[in-house]
Design a binder for these strands. Structure first.
Length: 593
RNA sequence: GGUUCCGUAGCUCAGUUGGAUAGAGCAACAGCCUUCUAAGCUGUGGGUCGAGCGUUCGAACCGCUCCGGAAUCACCA
């Protein structure tokens, strides 16, 4: 049951009977801050206009009337203009009973909406790095959250598998590779290809330097460098489907996909469908034609097609090159159109870095100018960069954090830490592997997802590896410890309660139950705001509160079986909600750790 | 210069539609393992919520102006 709604009805009725009709927004209910006594608080300031009395007096009157009319409200106190209401133990007992009886607590009712979430979207010329990790974790988590909110979600990846940058890797491999393969080198495919991308850049820079030494200016040297011309020639051959180039392209991309798949598996993310730009890059031309027919786009003398957005405070934007080939915007218009049509979408979410804010602003604007109402259902889930203590990550300067290295380091640290604490004694190799993987990745995922996506975040390798405090492992630990207590209780023959006697509840317990009742609303808010951070912070608060409770009320030392049964039921529910919340973040919770 | 975003404790971050004395974690300091897992718990210190003005009973939150930072404004993707 929605407690706020329940109280809202009661309070509205009471206020109306005391002072007559008031505007709905004048009734302001909120959770009571923990330094005050009570569960829910009515802010009476907005009601003074109707009551014509002082704040304290108004609160007093409403409090008295509420207690008299509503058995669920056990008492009240007034502090300045705030009426703090305490709900009865019976009421909270009933709340917990409802959660116990509902195995899908927090799962929203089906909305019937189809939502596509596009994320990851890598280039096939280099391995994934920390920035991609943020993208992948966000995309996956948001998908899970939208699902939990009752939507039908399709997770898709759009792989950028074509263009000059792939040709650079291919060319360098031809020139310097000596037939090296992932199998022969022992390298992960994406790393192997990435190495050749770097090799290209190195050779290219050397050639530029040489040309400049011969007296050419930098601008021209960049254009005239032979290796660059070769790469451009290769791209032309690719577009003409030259068999040899095409074959090499397929082989090297295949290596990269194998590498990416491994990283995705390690991260625990997945896709329902993968699009490839090599198959979609020609889309959108019919839309360009449509825009021309409708007079929304215009053609310049050289044949290129543009839209003028200066009236909207933006610039003119190119939609088709003079030679008739498409640009990024062209294909994005096309894919958006195709997807909404083919997949019958209600919403489309793009998880893409904030460097493309402008692009998506323009994309939406063009689509709505063309009269497509679904343009309003496109959301660019924009996220900030991940920075390192030394500053920005720059692949050219080698200051990137490689995704695979980072994952390995996290798991390894989890292993060392666990070993040091003696947590792994007596476990099988397989159990040890699973736990260390869950904890290491849990630390990484939680660290990234707990911050607001819009913000540029700082990744300090030393601090992120911390497993104490507001971290994934802390939450996993709380879960594991509850599970441990439940196992001990089962051995001793103690059974969790199925019906809750509210008269036994202590304040620490009603507070926990209240937090539990907030889970569905939190999921809803997270879905509405595309914010895993809301879930992360909720789960942390829940775990933290439980830890305090755990120390004050040891379950197995409780002599009253009824109280013990109640505590077991409450603990099990907390563990369940922690696991559910963490699942929305893509984080697993071990049974022991 | 235009557009968009960010600025909260020494550091990393929370702060729900405007509400009470602005919260966590890390770092520092002081306690707590013979009792269900100490990856834990309890306590102390630490703030001009970038600055100013306005809106109102009330502003970290809303509006305006300024300061600082980021991204972007390609016949790249």
């Amino acid at each position: 049951m929605d407690i706020e709604k329940f109280l809202l009805d009661k309070v509205t009725a009471t206020v109306t009977s005391l002072y007559g009709e008031v505007a709905p927004e004048a009734i302001q209910l909120q959770k009571t801050r923990k330094e005050f006594e009570g569960d829910m608080t009515l802010v009476v300031f907005p009601l003074l206009r109707a009551s014509h009395k002082k704040p304290e007096q108004t609160a007093e009157e409403i409090g008295q009337a509420l207690v008299a009319s509503t058995p669920e409200i056990a008492g009240y106190n007034v502090i300045k203009g705030f009426l703090n209401l305490s709900l009865s133990g019976t009421f909270w007992g009933k709340q917990l009973s409802e959660i116990l009886a509902n195995p899908t607590f927090g799962q929203g009712a089906p909305t019937g909406r189809h939502i596509m979430v596009e994320y990851s979207s890598p280039n096939t010329n280099k391995p994934l790095h920390l920035g991609h990790i943020r993208n992948n974790l966000l995309g996956y988590s948001v998908s899970r959250i939208l699902e939990a909110d009752g939507n039908q979600v399709m997770k898709v990846n759009l792989v950028n598998d074509r263009g000059i940058h792939i040709c650079k890797s291919m060319l360098a491999w031809q020139l310097f590779g000596h037939g090296e393969t992932p199998a022969s080198s022992g390298l992960k495919g994406d790393h192997l290809v990435g190495n050749y991308y770097v090799a290209f850049d190195k050779a290219y820079k050397a050639q530029i330097k040489e040309l400049m030494a011969q007296g050419m200016d930098e601008e021209q040297a960049k254009k005239e460098a032979p290796i660059m011309k070769q790469a451009q020639e290769m791209l032309r051959k690719w577009e003409a489907k030259d068999p040899e180039v095409y074959q090499l392209w397929q082989t090297m991309n295949g290596w990269v996909y194998e590498g990416f798949d491994k990283t995705y598996r390690e991260l625990g993310v997945s896709f329902d469908k993968v699009y490839y730009e090599s198959q979609t890059y020609l889309l959108g031309k019919s839309i360009v034609q449509e825009g021309l027919d409708k007079g929304i786009f215009f053609r310049k003398e050289d044949g290129s097609v543009w839209i003028d957005l200066t009236a909207d405070g933006l610039d003119q934007k190119l939609l088709l090159r003079g030679d008739g080939t498409s640009v990024y915007m062209t294909q994005d218009l096309g894919t958006a159109y195709t997807r909404f049509k083919e997949e019958n979408l209600d919403d489309m979410i793009y998880v893409v870095g904030n460097e493309q804010n402008y692009h998506f602003q323009v994309l939406k604007l063009i689509l709505s100018k063309l009269g497509y109402t679904w343009a309003d259902h496109i959301t660019h889930l924009s996220y900030g960069m991940v920075e390192l203590p030394e500053g920005k990550m720059k692949s050219r300067e080698g200051t990137v954090v490689d995704a695979d290295d980072l994952i390995d380091a996290m798991v390894e640290t989890a292993r060392e830490m666990s070993q040091e604490l003696g947590k792994l004694d007596g476990l099988s190799q397989e159990e040890i592997h699973d736990i260390c993987h869950m904890v290491g990745l849990g630390a990484l995922k939680y660290f990234i997802l707990k911050v607001d996506p819009r913000k540029t975040m700082l990744f300090d390798p030393k601090e992120s590896i911390d497993f104490n405090g507001n971290t994934g492992p802390f939450i996993q630990y709380t879960h594991a410890r509850i599970k441990s207590v439940l196992r001990k209780a089962a051995e001793a023959g103690a059974v969790p309660a199925t019906q809750i006697d509210g008269t036994l509840l202590v304040p620490a317990e009603t507070a926990l139950i209240q937090m539990l009742t907030e889970y569905p609303a939190t999921v809803k808010a997270a879905a509405a705001n595309f914010s895993p951070a809301l879930i992360a912070n909720y789960v942390y608060e829940l775990a933290k509160s439980y830890n305090g409770y755990y120390h004050d009320f040891p379950i197995m030392r409780e002599s009253d079986p009824a109280k013990q049964a109640l505590r077991l039921a409450l603990s099990a529910t907390v563990a369940r909600i922690i696991a559910a919340g963490m699942a929305l973040l893509g984080i697993g919770v071990p049974e022991r750790m």
